[in-house]
């Protein structure tokens, strides 16, 4: 699936959830079922320190695609980390760089990406694109 198809799929899944409790329940489930972050990646270079919570992000190239692994100490943040990985991981650097992430806004969780929340998520999105850019440069 393309990145946008994945985004649309998430929007569909969330559209059936009626109130914020269901939405947050879903995020918590997503956080709890995110693939465990390999301990060898839990190093200072992979840490994105927010004021409120911490996010870990690891990226590597596998057969021309960027593969991400991530984690957070806050479960709601981890849920969104899980969504970002689901959408962006396994795609080429070009695809990642040319994507506009619209799903967070559309599923009503934009507030988590606000700079004032200072939970590390905004920096994570930026970092994911930076990795794509770096991998793109090494390919050329």
């Amino acid at each position: 699936m393309t990145i946008n198809e994945l985004q649309d799929e998430i929007i569909d899944e969330f559209s059936v959830l009626e109130d914020w409790m269901d939405k947050y329940g879903m995020l918590i489930d997503l956080g709890n079922t995110l693939e465990p972050f390999p301990e060898e990646y839990r190093i200072p270079q992979n840490l994105i320190e927010g004021c409120q919570s911490r996010v870990w992000l690891h990226a590597e190239m596998q057969q021309g695609n960027v593969v991400f692994a991530g984690d957070s100490d806050a479960i709601l943040v981890k849920g969104i980390v899980s969504l970002l990985i689901k959408v962006l991981s396994g795609h080429t650097p070009d695809e990642i760089l040319n994507t506009e992430l619209y799903f967070i806004d559309r599923i009503g969780l934009k507030e988590h990406l606000s700079p004032t929340r200072s939970n590390g998520l905004l920096a994570m999105v930026k970092q994911m694109k930076m990795y794509a850019l770096a991998f793109q440069a090494t390919q050329q």
Binding site: W20, M21, Y24, C51, Q52, S53, D73, A74, I75, L76, V77, H112, N119
Partner: peptide, 22 residues
């Protein structure tokens, strides 16, 4: 083991303003 951020976000949704973090 609940992270303060999670508790604060959910309480906020219920109209309760608390501070979380350091």
């Amino acid at each position: 083991k609940i992270h303060p951020y999670d508790l604060g976000m959910l309480l906020d949704k219920m109209g309760i303003a608390v501070r979380t973090g350091h």
